[in-house]
Design a protein around this nucleic acid. Structure first.
Lengths: 191, 191
DNA sequence: CGTGTCATGTAATCAGTTACATGATTCA
DNA sequence: TGAATCATGTAACTGATTACATGACACG
């Protein structure tokens, strides 16, 4: 119940696309889910062993000339079952920490200019993400036009676009507010 | 450099409002920053000791009749300095995990109806948050009208409102897309 | 000749949650 | 009588990152 390790499901899910090695899994996530899910090798390799112990995956070894061996993992029927069970369960909503907001909450302790800089820098990052999302969208729409997974990929991208656009608006509004405050301060804060 | 423990700064920041005990700090965060920052007692109490060892805070004990003692912590000059140093530094952008998107990324493994349910449930949660934000906004705008911190509090609330609204739009759009897909499936997926 | 990729993994550390332990008072 | 609040803390555990270790090949 309650607390389940979610790395398991990220791996099971990825393996439902195709059998993969730990190395492949990392690359796969970097190229697809990295904006909302990532795992490090230090999580992947031990977890793959555990999944195999639990009978959710099976592995076989591919020998290659002049390269290290590949340990390729594939879902078992039990693995598919466990993946589907998790997918049918409602997602938990996590309260995520936001360092920028924490700083702004203590905004009066530093100059208005400092706070504006933080937000401007953040705006740049978000604008970059948005562009990235739009690039990916255009690419996969043509490249995977016939792929039945496409609609779901687009849904996750759309999430990113909506959030990014909202953040850009918030940045602009907020910078505006703070700039007005800055001018008022310069003018000499009349009682 | 690089990796600094941020709980420190959450506590230093909170103590910049007023001297507080560990218990107070928890309540303070619950009532103000809980939507973007929270700490548990198990983090707060040891951290307060550490901050005192480092000379960033000082503590004194208040004895009370029929109640446990209160250990009240206050910022030292060095503590203020450290807080300001951190506030002037740019915030790190963390890649946050999103379980809902992870499930949707594997959406084809379950029925369209299941995915729609997830999003509908999520929509309800977001709508609740948005309402909560609007309630708090109205309250503090009148209750703290003259407080110089108010603009920054409103900025963090505005962030929440922008995000929530964007999420509602995404939910509606996405539910729509999936419902159309569902109808197409029922109609018998013509080639 | 150095960097990057392929490929596996472990050890140490740090961060964070949950459970445990205590005990008086107040309120319904 | 039982739950909630006040108030402090520790221990055990889980989760996640960083650093370490190895070694061949390809590319510029």
């Amino acid at each position: 119940m309650s607390k389940e390790n979610k790395s398991r499901y990220a791996l099971l899910g990825a393996l439902s696309y195709a059998p993969m090695s730990g190395y492949d899994l990392k690359k796969f996530m970097e190229g697809s889910t990295s904006n909302f899910w990532n795992e490090s090798y230090a999580q992947i390799y031990p977890m793959l062993k555990q999944l195999t112990n639990e009978g959710l995956t099976v592995s076989h070894t591919e020998r290659q000339e002049g390269r290290p061996e590949r340990h390729v993992y594939a879902l078992t029927d039990k693995g598919w079952e466990e993946l589907r069970r998790w997918l049918a369960e409602p997602a938990e909503r996590q309260v995520e920490r936001n360092e920028l907001l924490l700083k702004l909450f203590f905004g009066t302790r530093v100059s208005v200019a400092t706070n504006i800089e933080h937000i401007q820098r953040y705006r740049g990052l978000v604008a970059g993400s948005l562009q990235q999302f739009e690039g990916i969208e255009a690419t996969i729409k043509t490249q995977y036009a016939e792929n039945p997974e496409l609609p779901y990929w687009l849904i996750t991208l759309s999430y990113g676009k909506h959030i990014s656009q909202a953040l850009l608006n918030w940045c602009d509004e907020t910078i505006n507010i703070l700039q007005k405050q800055q001018e008022a301060e310069k003018a000499g804060t009349p009682s």
